[in-house]
């Protein structure tokens, strides 16, 4: 198999995404929204349990309330998706706080953000918010715990990525003791 020397469109989407925190007021097209949400729930999940639940919010009043209780949302967005862990479907049996299901919620949010980017939109995952207030605003039952609020919309400024740690610092091959940079 010969590998293409140009990155595929998908790789361009992966490598071109960055957090978008400033949005134009333009609403999200309903058909685009449907595609984003489909991409979100296409994410992998431990044991295919899909211990997640999502609330897509576009109502201006609810958006204002959510932002007021979420210091991590910097600018108003036309769409906020609350990604929740469904504790009633926890992967583990012991009812501990930590559960693989939390990782699955994160994977779904990453799918959502990449899908948004591929549609010319942008978004930011936000973990700085008051959980019990969001629970109340969205009328979430107790077993649905909001984990991430993803604010999404049309970017109001050019995308810019913050620097990454050097790949040689965070990636090694075969064993951690192997500092051979040949692969890097």
């Amino acid at each position: 198999m010969t590998l293409p020397d140009q990155p595929s469109d998908f790789m361009r989407v992966l490598l071109g995404r960055s957090a978008v925190r400033d949005f134009t007021p333009e609403a999200i097209d309903p058909e685009v929204l449907r595609r984003l949400l489909d991409a979100m729930i296409a994410a992998p999940s431990a044991g295919n349990v899909q211990a997640w639940a999502f609330v897509a919010v576009q109502d201006p009043r609810t958006l204002k309330l959510l932002r007021a209780f979420a210091p991590g949302i910097i600018q108003p967005a036309p769409l906020i998706v609350a990604a929740c862990f469904d504790r009633s479907r926890a992967v583990k049996d012991d009812g501990e706080f930590w559960d693989e299901g939390l990782l699955c919620v994160a994977m779904a949010v990453e799918n959502l953000l990449l899908a948004a980017h591929s549609e010319g939109l942008g978004g930011c995952p936000v973990a700085s918010f008051r959980r019990d207030s969001v629970q109340e605003i969205l009328e979430l039952p107790k077993h649905l715990e909001p984990i991430i609020l993803a604010s999404i919309g049309h970017p109001a400024r050019p995308l810019a990525s913050p620097p990454r740690r050097d790949r040689s610092e965070v990636i090694r091959h075969e064993t951690w003791g192997n500092r051979d940079a040949a692969h890097n």
């Binding site: 204002k64 932002r67 007021a68 209780f69 979420a70 210091p71 700085s128 918010f129 008051r130 207030s133």
Partner: peptide
């Protein structure tokens, strides 16, 4: 007035959040 009330709400949430968030925030 609405914007000011939302700002006051934001500030209170920031205040509470700082007990759990990294100091640098």
């Amino acid at each position: 007035t609405e914007e000011l009330v939302l700002l006051a709400t934001h500030l209170l949430n920031c205040a509470r959040g700082l007990f759990n968030e990294p100091q640098a925030y």
